[in-house]
């Protein structure tokens, strides 16, 4: 396989709070290929947002501290760059979209001003050229009547329209990677489907690689080619989307998929995963899912399973996989 565009290797992030040091992200590794969409999926507290924020170097330090690992973008380790170099990359080679565009857009500037600012800083465009390019971008994200909307303030737009402006802003300087952290979670389902449709379409046209952080397996199934499943700070399973859904290996992945209420299933009882996440400060030598896993034995309690390949390209971190037969 070609050299990945973005490669996260053995990333470990710790938080120091109240004199306690806790591991929020532990030994996380994955690759994002050019032109691909990679989904990072998991529930609250799994470390997916901490992972994406540390890639962008947006975690406040202290309390956060990247304790180990590398984040290679086109061969360069982002963790070693100066803040100045990093600022050049954000909004340039790395585009970002967040869940609530209202908090990421500046309320006192028009949408156009914010896009033009990005173009000026990163691409050196100014004046009419910048304004024309901004209108072109708003057209690209299918904002209705962009030549008028460009002078609107964020509060004059609906949630879906604001997210379109965020995407235009993120794509302004032809980024190599777009990091989207729960980009549709705050939107209504018909608007969500419009935004996902737009992201797919833009990817086909621009070839931007997308890292999509989400809690929603439905969104993953509809947009991603590769999936990374996280639990309690670790990657517990990863692989191509078809394989993860057709052949889930980790007991947590299996439980998570079975817990999703399906529209085609009738009034059946939902499968749930009993128990809850272990507290992050608890030092667990073994598998973090062991306390909720019906298959866990002494080895699972004592020894942390590493990712290993079960079928080509499909890795799982579980001593018991593949779970078959009498189990």
């Amino acid at each position: 396989m070609a050299e990945p565009l973005l490669s996260v290797r053995s990333l470990e992030v710790r938080f120091r709070l109240d004199g306690r040091s806790m591991r929020a992200v532990d030994d996380v590794s994955f690759d994002l290929q050019k032109g691909q969409t990679l989904g990072i999926v998991g529930e609250s507290g799994c470390g997916k947002s901490v992972t994406s924020l540390s890639i962008m170097r947006l975690l406040p330090s202290p309390p956060a501290q990247v304790a180990a690992g590398e984040v290679l973008l086109e061969g360069r380790d982002l963790l070693k760059l100066s803040e100045r170099e990093m600022r050049k990359l954000r909004g340039g080679r790395i585009g970002m979209i967040f869940q609530e565009p209202m908090t990421s857009l500046n309320p006192v500037y028009t949408c156009g001003d914010q896009i033009i600012e990005g173009l000026r800083v990163h691409s050196g465009l100014s004046g009419k050229a910048a304004r024309d390019r901004a209108i072109e971008l708003l057209e690209l994200v299918r904002l209705p009547s962009p030549e008028k909307r460009i002078d609107d303030y964020p509060h004059q737009l609906s949630g879906g329209q604001r997210q379109r402006v965020m995407i235009a802003l993120a794509l302004a300087n032809d980024p190599a990677v777009l990091i989207a952290d729960e980009p549709t979670t705050a939107l209504d389902v018909t608007i969500q489907s419009q935004i996902l449709d737009l992201m797919r379409d833009l990817q086909e046209r621009t070839g931007t690689a997308i890292m999509l952080i989400t809690h929603d397996l439905g969104v993953v199934a509809e947009t991603c080619q590769q999936v990374v499943v996280m639990y309690a700070g670790s990657v517990i399973e990863r692989g191509p989307v078809d394989k993860i859904f057709a052949d889930p290996q980790h007991p947590y992945t299996i439980g998570l998929m079975a817990a999703v209420p399906r529209m085609d299933a009738g009034r059946a009882r939902l499968a749930s995963i009993p128990g809850s996440l272990p507290p992050p400060w608890q030092n667990i030598p073994g598998c973090r899912f062991a306390s909720r896993c019906p298959l866990a034995d002494n080895r699972c309690q004592a020894e942390m399973p590493r990712l290993r390949e079960v079928t080509p390209g499909h890795d799982v971190a579980c001593w018991k996989a593949p779970i078959e037969g009498a189990g």
Binding site: T190, Q192, S193, L196, G218, A221, E222, F245, M257
Partner: peptide, 12 residues
């Protein structure tokens, strides 16, 4: 439209 827009957790 609502039913069509809801994402399905099944790539197939």
């Amino acid at each position: 439209a609502l039913l069509a827009a809801a994402p399905r957790a099944d790539p197939a």
